[in-house]
Design a binder for these strands. Structure first.
Lengths: 287, 287
DNA sequence: CCGATTCCGGAAATTAATTTTCACCCAACG
DNA sequence: CGTTGGGTGAAAATTAATTTCCGGAATCGG
């Protein structure tokens, strides 16, 4: 399924010739997708049958299928293969950012476990009160986004990006509270402390973070978001798209868990908005 | 080049049969990319040569090239074609959200004018002080994100999501100020008022909004973000990804406009962060 | 309304590409 | 040193794509 990983041969499954081909293909994906089997074979210095065999070994049904898979992979992964393209013109910057964002979403898709997501949504749904923590430019955006999305669904929620405040909130959490935290590095020790405090007191905790990190270990339920960091492609900047998508998903699932309530609240908010504007009702359809 | 638009036949350039084929292809891209020319021809009820001719007419060199182009296009646009998949299971919700987000990015890519982007970045770069406005759950995220990204690059910037405050800030803006506003609907009349106030006073204004909207008309420079709203696919929820990407691009371009300054500021911030954490230096590499 | 012309699509033939078969070589191992 | 297994390329076979050519339908002019 994941052609890219097969081609990079992480497991060493490929023979010498296969590796030569894989390298050639990765080096110039456009050529590979555009050429015929014999052109590719010639450039690689092998025979056409070898190319066919190669395609089979990497999991495709034939050369034609290989090209399609390759093309499908590239759109998302092109920059990933040649990461250090210097980006300086506005076109390049735009392309680069979009590709990285799409890459982040793509990888999220590959690793996401919907059951965990759903479990988290059910916990949030059942909460009397939700605390959303996350500090630093990136995670604070996520926690405020959680607040923004969930209050519309009838959840009582407060978000905080203030570490000192977080600790107090955590220490003072009463029964019925649920905490959801975000940390891209997973190494925010104040946050870990908050999670520990709350777990001791029986407050369910959900973390959006790197798996295996201190924050992940301290949380009751972790939704792991692990984007490859190789070659500095997945910096927080692009990782945010994945986090944001997870928030979107959680909000959707919470909404679906109790549609009537969500619809009722959304409608009230919408009415209020329409009243304060020039009849524009699009702003809030959000979900 | 842009296969998707040719296939949707916006210009009515295609013949009846071509349209039939285009529709079939769009309906089931997976089948089209996976099948042979005769399979596709049979399912469409046409002859293989017609398929070849069709491929030529839509700008490909042949059927094989067509499949590759299609595969390249698809990954991003797939769900757009079958939008009303009812989403209820966690898997479907996850898939749906990711696809919509990728769609939004895809469309942004298609319509974005990098020159405008660069122009905006240069204006921001030259500003003594930047005001970032945007209210409501979505645009307030964007304005706070602008603040978060640009202050790291050495820009003096303040963001506000408070309409009353916005008006005061606009009225009081001194020379050297630049305003950048975000409005997904473009119908925020308070924002329009702010823009008018500032333009009168010679304060350059940049808007991220729908083209042709009141906000767009009131702004000095508009970076249009028009995502198709048909069939409710591009609700604000997914449009945010596009807005966020534009912020990313602007931040990048501002940074590149004066690398030394950006690097110096980033380094200072990073040092501070590392000191306050357990040596984790990844959080801020942002760009 | 009729005939000619043009455009378009399909059948068959042609051509090109891919895949299979088969024979060979090299390396590893008995 | 021979044998066996894995892998390779040449050639053949097969399959797929494309071109050619012809026929039919629509259109326009008479």
């Amino acid at each position: 399924m994941d052609l890219y990983h097969v081609l990079t041969d992480d497991e060493g499954r490929l023979s010498d010739m296969d590796r030569k081909l894989a390298q050639l293909v990765l080096q110039d994906v456009d050529f590979a997708t555009g050429s015929s089997i014999s052109e590719l074979a010639e450039r690689a210095g092998v025979s056409p049958p070898s190319v066919t065999r190669f395609c089979r070994r990497v999991g495709c049904s034939g050369f034609s299928d290989f090209k399609v898979q390759l093309a499908r992979m590239t759109y998302v992964g092109l920059r990933y293969l040649r990461p250090e393209v210097p980006t300086s013109t506005p076109e390049e910057v735009a392309e680069d950012i979009l590709t990285k964002a799409q890459n982040a979403l793509f990888h999220l898709h590959q690793q996401l476990d919907p059951r965990l997501l759903n479990e988290a949504a059910q916990i949030l749904r059942a909460a009397d009160f939700i605390l959303a923590f996350g500090s630093g430019g990136n995670s604070s955006m996520i926690s405020s986004e959680l607040q923004n999305r969930l209050f519309r669904l009838g959840c009582n929620i407060h978000n905080s990006s203030d570490r000192a405040m977080d600790l107090m909130l955590a220490a003072g959490a009463v029964e019925g509270t649920v905490a959801i935290v975000s940390s891209m590095t997973g190494r925010d020790l104040d946050l870990v402390r908050c999670l520990e405090l709350m777990r001791q007191r029986g407050v369910p905790t959900i973390a959006l973070t790197q798996s295996g990190s201190p924050v992940a270990r301290a949380a009751g339920l972790t939704i792991p978001i692990d984007l490859p960091e190789g070659r500095n492609i997945f910096r927080p900047t692009s990782t945010r798209y994945a986090y944001l998508a997870v928030v979107d998903m959680l909000a959707n699932l919470v909404a679906y868990a109790d549609r009537p309530r969500a619809i009722a609240v959304l409608r009230r908010i919408k009415e209020e908005l329409v009243r304060s504007r020039d009849g524009d009702d699009r702003q809030l359809l959000g979900d």
